[in-house]
């Protein structure tokens, strides 16, 4: 985490040091669609998400970098009945997942020299996951760091005046931990991209 910050700060202040584009930054709005066990817990899609991503060109077609995001999932279930052995509870449930993915990534870009560059990326890192179930006036909350990976396809589009667009689809997967089942969701991310 600290390392990412240092790299990020270096990236910001080093902008004047390079004549050519050395790094690529994007800020995206994220929509997330839960899958698997995550969908069993919260079936509704999330439209609350943001991510910051920074990448450095190691050659004209390859970047390495990292990103930090935040996705909020939420669902209210009216008067749910849950049972465990001989105990039964009935009440309105509010369910939340706050997922904070932190990844290192590597990406390969096609169409060198073109305004539109599709790419393929691999992300690896962790997703800090906070899962909270409120029922009646009580709440159960678990917070865990999940080892995670995320394959990603996307496209960078250069438009007028170097205001660029980042568009990508990413499958996020955080491994099962002690209290929280595997976290998986497909993120559809769109935002702006700028270079230094």
């Amino acid at each position: 985490m600290k390392k990412i910050l240092i790299i990020a700060l270096f990236g910001l202040f080093s902008s004047t040091m390079f004549a050519q584009d050395q790094s690529m930054w994007s800020l995206t709005y994220n929509m997330s669609f839960p899958m698997g066990a995550t969908k069993d817990y919260i079936s509704k899609a999330s439209f609350r998400g943001i991510a910051l991503d920074g990448r450095w060109f190691v050659d004209n077609n390859v970047t390495v970098g990292g990103n930090l995001g935040w996705n909020v999932f939420y669902e209210k279930i009216d008067k749910a009945t849950i049972s465990s052995e001989n105990l039964t509870l009935n009440g309105t449930q509010w369910k939340y997942i706050n997922a904070v993915p932190m990844f290192f990534n590597a990406a390969y870009y096609l169409n060198e020299g073109s305004y539109v560059r599709p790419y393929l990326a691999a992300n690896i890192g962790t997703i800090f996951t906070s899962q909270r179930t409120e029922m009646g006036m009580y709440a159960l909350q678990d917070k865990e760091w999940k080892f995670a990976f995320a394959p990603e396809i996307g496209v960078t589009i250069e438009t007028y005046n170097s205001i660029n667009v980042m568009l990508n689809v990413r499958y996020n997967y955080g491994l099962e931990t002690e209290y929280i089942e595997p976290l998986s969701y497909i993120g559809v991310n769109v935002g702006i991209l700028w270079t230094y």
Partner: peptide, 28 residues
């Protein structure tokens, strides 16, 4: 995005009956 996220953090109005909880347990 900042305004969007802060203003839309998910909550609903909560009524009294929303917070009612019924629990039962029995000797199997």
């Amino acid at each position: 995005t900042g305004v969007f996220l802060a203003s839309c953090y998910p909550t609903d109005d909560v009524s009294y009956s929303d917070l009612d909880l019924v629990g039962t347990i029995h000797d199997e």
